[in-house]
Design a protein around this nucleic acid. Structure first.
Lengths: 153, 153
DNA sequence: TATAACCTTAGAGCCAACTCTAAGGTCAAT
DNA sequence: ATTGACCTTAGAGTTGGCTCTAAGGTTATA
């Protein structure tokens, strides 16, 4: 229903359009995420609008944090939306959100520890014989995995 | 000045003490982070208290988010504190903090996007023909790297 | 027709930090 | 003397997502 002129793109043009390298596009193809709907006689890949939109979907999903495996699932929903439910989609999204949140928690804990370390140290040109960062790392009282930061003040 | 009895540990005992696998301990050794100050005639590694403390330092630094390369630098300060300044230590720490903060920002953006996506979708058993998550990914309006999330409501 | 700029493929390399394997040596207890 | 649990080494494999290389074929322009 799009009456615009269909633009056929070679891989370097698709690369330019999407900001993904030709290498990456071939890599995505090898992993079953995208495809060139046509080839020239010599085997050159030709991409149409639909191909382009699919690649852009992949790129957007990638930017959102989805793994290539996640995206594979999202794409199989995308090509046959009628056979899938919104819940199928939210399941994938929810799973990803949990992963991201978990990593976030870990990084926040690291951030807090690093900030505490920096606060505790003069950071000056004095020699490090009594550096409180070194002492804290020696004392081992920072954080063990999930435990709260509990650096000595 | 520690008059306690020095405990000599084999690698499996050091592993038990530290929670790091013997494989990992050998790996750290291969990468110049730690060492067994002694070996048996047969070549078995023997670790003394000082070795143990060094390994614990490495573990603590690892938990804090430092890379093995960072830890290598921290260790070389640790063995000769007199020749290094507090600033040397805070430089490493600051650099790590910046890395962590950058990653945090990226993950927060992802988290926000994922939350918006989930809010926008019913998540129900309806088929996905009008799934707003799929539409958002198709529209490509989520986030390009650093740009703010700007999903259509 | 020559040259440069494309394109193709299979497969290797990269990153970090492990994790594991193979093939063998050592040691304590039975 | 024989288990079985330890230890040694070099080196390969894992993870995910690229990124690059080599060796060659194609196409557009001068």
């Amino acid at each position: 229903m799009d009456f615009g002129i269909e633009k056929i793109l070679k891989i370097s043009e698709l690369s330019e359009q999407t900001g993904l390298s030709a290498h990456t596009l071939r890599y995505y193809e090898k992993h079953g995420l995208i495809n060139a709907s046509n080839r020239s006689e010599a085997g050159y890949r030709f991409y149409n609008d639909s191909d382009l939109r699919r690649v852009q979907f992949v790129k957007t999903a990638r930017n959102t944090g989805f793994s290539l495996a996640d995206i594979g699932q999202l794409l199989s929903i995308r090509v046959d939306k009628r056979s899938h439910s919104c819940q199928d989609v939210t399941d994938i999204t929810q799973k990803k959100l949990l992963e991201v949140s978990a990593k976030l928690t870990e990084l926040q804990s690291m951030q807090q520890t690093l900030e505490l370390l920096l606060e505790s140290c003069c950071g000056g040109p004095e020699n490090a014989t009594h550096c409180s960062i070194m002492e804290a790392l020696d004392a081992g009282l920072l954080r063990d995995d999930n435990k709260e930061a509990r650096i000595i003040k």
